[in-house]
Simulated scan of single mutants.
Amino acid sequence: MEKLKKIAAPLALIASLIALWWVVVVQTESVIFPTPLQVVTGTLELAADGILWEHIVASLLRVGAGFLLAILVALPLGLWMGRVEGAYRTLNPLFQIMRPISPIAWIPLAILWFGVGNVSPIFLIFLASVFPMIVQTASGVHTIEKRYLRAAENFGVSRSTLFRQVIIPAVLPEIIVGMRIGLGVAWLVVVAAEMIALRSGLGYLIMDSRNAGNRYDLVIAGMLIIGVIGLVLDGLMRFLESLKSVRWRYGR
């Protein structure tokens, strides 16, 4: 019953928006903008042909590859910057300059360097994800209470043990936050990159539907699928936040 109460309000809001959408399209007698039923019909058509699943898998694989590369680079680098003051002073200004630059602005350079293919969007996803995780991880190390580090040093623990049993558990909540931010931006970037430089993925599906006979039902379907997948990905990150090893940092 408690779970039903939590989802009742969002479901009611979504249902109201769909009803409003339907009424507006019918009342305006639009011949271009689709009704919700037309969007559902178009989605089922793509799903039956298998085309929809191919585009979804293509986008998810690109995001997965770029995001994994970002994790492999960002976490060790962020931990190092958090522990070594000289590294932080040297690298942080550069990352703070790079971080606000929209990954979309890198698309022309990505195409120039890597051509039209999967490497370009993976590179863009890497850029979108790596800086939030580096900054958040380094910030998390800086927020560790000094008494924990002093206590470990007093017991004579090795550097590897200090990282494994003190620093990483303490900074893990901040790492998850950085991953959640990075994954959200990565999902935005892959769709934009696919609209410009690729021939597969949800971004390409939207542009191809627009160009191939103004199939706006499929355009809207692609947009909604992007939103739903984004919600699911964010839910996965929120699940990580609920793990016992992470939950201690949050109020609930």
Rank of each mutant, 00 (worst) to 15 (best):
R210L: 15
A212F: 10
S209G: 01
L198E: 09
N214E: 13
V189I: 14
I196T: 07
E174Y: 15
I206G: 10
E194P: 03
W187N: 00
I206R: 08
G184Q: 06
L205M: 12
W187C: 04
V185M: 12
G184T: 05
A193C: 03
E174H: 15
V190E: 00
L183R: 00
A186C: 02
A170V: 04
I176H: 04
E194V: 01
V191L: 11
V177H: 05
L172S: 07
A170P: 08
R215C: 07
V189C: 11
P169H: 02
R199C: 05
E194I: 01
I176C: 09
E174D: 14
S209H: 00
N214T: 13
L202T: 08
A192Y: 09
I206Q: 07
G178D: 09
S209A: 15
I181M: 12
G178L: 07
P169A: 02
R215W: 05
A193Y: 07
E174R: 13
A170Q: 12
M195N: 09
V177D: 11
G184F: 06
I206D: 08
R210T: 13
V171P: 10
E194Y: 01
A212L: 12
V177N: 15
I196A: 10
L188Y: 10
M179A: 15
S209F: 00
V185E: 11
L188P: 04
I206P: 09
Y204S: 04
N211A: 15
V177P: 04
A197H: 05
L198M: 14
I175S: 09
